[in-house]
Nucleic acid binder design. Sequence first.
DNA 1: CTGTCAATTGACACAGTGTCAAGCAAATGA
DNA 2: TCATTTGCTTGACACTGTGTCAATTGACAG
Lengths: 210, 210
Amino acid sequence: MSSDPIDTPTKILHATLTLLEKPHAKLPTMSDIARATGISRQAVYLHFPSRTDLLVAATRYQDEQNAVNAALAPSREARSGAERLDAFVTAWGNYIPKIYGVARAIMAVTDTDAEAAAAWNTRMQDMRGGCAAAVQALAEDGTLPQGTDMEQATDLLWTLLSVRNWENLTQICGWSQDCYIATIRGMAMATLARDLGALTDVLACPDTPT
Amino acid sequence: MSSDPIDTPTKILHATLTLLEKPHAKLPTMSDIARATGISRQAVYLHFPSRTDLLVAATRYQDEQNAVNAALAPSREARSGAERLDAFVTAWGNYIPKIYGVARAIMAVTDTDAEAAAAWNTRMQDMRGGCAAAVQALAEDGTLPQGTDMEQATDLLWTLLSVRNWENLTQICGWSQDCYIATIRGMAMATLARDLGALTDVLACPDTPT
DNA sequence: CTGTCAATTGACACAGTGTCAAGCAAATGA
DNA sequence: TCATTTGCTTGACACTGTGTCAATTGACAG
């Protein structure tokens, strides 16, 4: 809103996110992005050396925009392990829809582009930190199943909370967001906090799938 | 071995699978496949109209080769629901590594190619049938958590058993196949058959991740 | 006035998919 | 035996998309 509203790199990132966030849209090309930004295709390359770099930058930009750390903060304040697990699953689960468009694009290139795969893995490692913290809290409470290896428990929670699983349940099976949260939360609580009660009525959401 | 060893389409499928099954290999191009088959690139198009068609045919061919139905047969004979779930999880979980190479290729194009996505979904729907049957058997035993919607329970089991989850745990987290099977089995039993005992010692596999 | 910076236009190389046409060689059949 | 069909070959080409390069323009600053 100052004299220079926004600089070009930011404009590009903004346009990229807009394109990416359109549901069911085809993955945008560099030309699409340039057009949406209102600049030439070559100008995009002036700021981002490759499509992968741009996508990676877009994820970072998006995290700033959405203040992911703020969203995940409540889970760090929970006292008991179960509470912490619960808060983390809810916070992350509700964050996924916001990043899904970008995640989709990055995951698509991940299969062919090693650099993109590395960037995505790094981003997911951050989320893994939250999983590890929740597992740690559960361990301190002594609610983990006996003999549990914390590394493995973290892996499991991390996998359970993957964007792919969210995609499967909400996008393919047609679950509502609430249903997704309730179910995954119940599953995490049952598996990692031995709380079978968490499963009651969880698989009986009002909405019905495809 | 006989007079006419193998016809060309079969040779192409065979070469495709060989390329696809190489761990960590780049996804093969039509040229790669032609070269591996020992024919010209155009000859491949003579038998398969597009790369997607070829990949889809390769999955079918592979299913025949591996006799997936035979592998899944034991689970259909189990008496109790829990037994059936157990047998199905084990059978499918042990089948995934065999198809992973091809699955990887198909999933990679799934993000951009709608036809491939449809083909892959169809294939996964077959597996979903097994999930549904297991859920059905559990329902007859009355072991499902109260109020469970069977459709949703099927979705959940189906998601839990996805190739992506297998990939996450064994390829990225470095779990052994045995550990994967034990853990997923435990999770499925705990969630769908309310058998918390199934989780004991499950997250304490000998091997350690990355 | 002169740099310098940001962006533009237009051309190009390259990889990969998919199409087309002409030709060749071996098996099939009258 | 000659003609036809079948399966494959070679080589060219169109198209999309990424990434590079060079020459040019316009604005702003010292």
